[in-house]
Design a protein around this nucleic acid. Structure first.
Lengths: 158, 158
DNA sequence: TGGTTATTGCGACTCAGATGCAATTGGAAC
DNA sequence: GTTCCAATTGCATCTGAGTCGCAATAACCA
């Protein structure tokens, strides 16, 4: 079993269409099944990360429903190939997106669950500050930065 | 139902012993049951955060076992009083600690699961950098900063 | 057109956590 | 010290995320 929640830092593979992704599967000797196409179609159909459940449910009627266990297995496969990444935004389930579409880093508000996405370079100053204090190389694409957004911080008098 | 995973920012109440904590319960008109004492004893018995399951299991024979549902309910109650805080360190379950013992902020390594604890002031530069970019008031006591520790970062050539 | 084997889809399972409810018990009042 | 009643417990049961075993199916290759 592979721990889906672990960070494996696969190189991101950029694919612009379902067909390109399918080609990537073939390159690795993987079969192109209907179930796999459905997962890819779901991921290409939205610009926000999706839960496995949402994909299995057919993203609200936009694609046919499929089996959630297969969706998990395929997302895992795609993540190993570097096609997909997942992020833990707050509580709820893991959310999945095409790897290149998810090259963003996230900041979430613990009070109102607001999420802001940044280009990685925008958070380099934060990364540098973390490095100074701890020597750690911080990343916010898998586990986001957490805090209170300006509005909620005001309301709390923080 | 109260969402245990939400950040409610209760003021931290500093108690130095089970008896002081018990006093705090009485102050708020709450009953002091055997189950509640067990949870408090577990929290006072260790200096690292514990899962509800560990407490219910009697922290490896150190205290009597108790019912996990009650442990969850009591941890929630204690958290509302400001006696207890929980933190999400990586994957696994939520971990609970006495609020004043958990006034630390955390940085975790996504590769090796190493955890480092800091005094909040040590991470003020990070907080300032986050504020500059996003306006958010970052906190790392509930959701930690994530990244790669120096050793793992070296191994990855990051 | 078949044969092989990866993949599917279903069911069952684990684990974290929440909840309904009857039985128990803390503690205030007497 | 008893009594009483509501707060709390403990058990069972449920939900939701995610995993796994396995027989049936269906890609792909020859």
């Amino acid at each position: 079993m592979v721990d889906l929640t672990a960070s494996r830092a696969r190189p991101r593979v950029r694919v612009e269409s379902v067909e390109e992704a399918v080609e990537e599967l073939r390159t690795h000797g993987l079969r192109v099944s209907a179930a796999r196409r459905l997962v890819l179609e779901a991921l290409f159909a939205t610009d926000t990360p999706l839960s496995a459940r949402q994909i299995a449910d057919g993203i609200a009627g936009r694609i046919p429903r499929s089996d959630v266990a297969s969706v998990y297995r395929n997302l895992e496969t795609f993540e190993e190939l570097g096609l997909v990444r997942h992020v833990h935004l707050g509580h709820g389930p893991s959310l999945f997106a095409l790897a290149h579409a998810n090259a963003r880093e996230y900041v979430i508000c613990e009070s109102c669950d607001a999420v802001r996405a940044y280009e990685p370079t925008q958070l380099d100053a934060v990364r540098a500050a973390v490095r100074d204090v701890s020597g750690f190389e911080a990343r916010f694409d898998h586990f986001p930065l957490a805090g209170h957004c300006p509005t909620c911080a005001d309301n709390r008098g923080t």
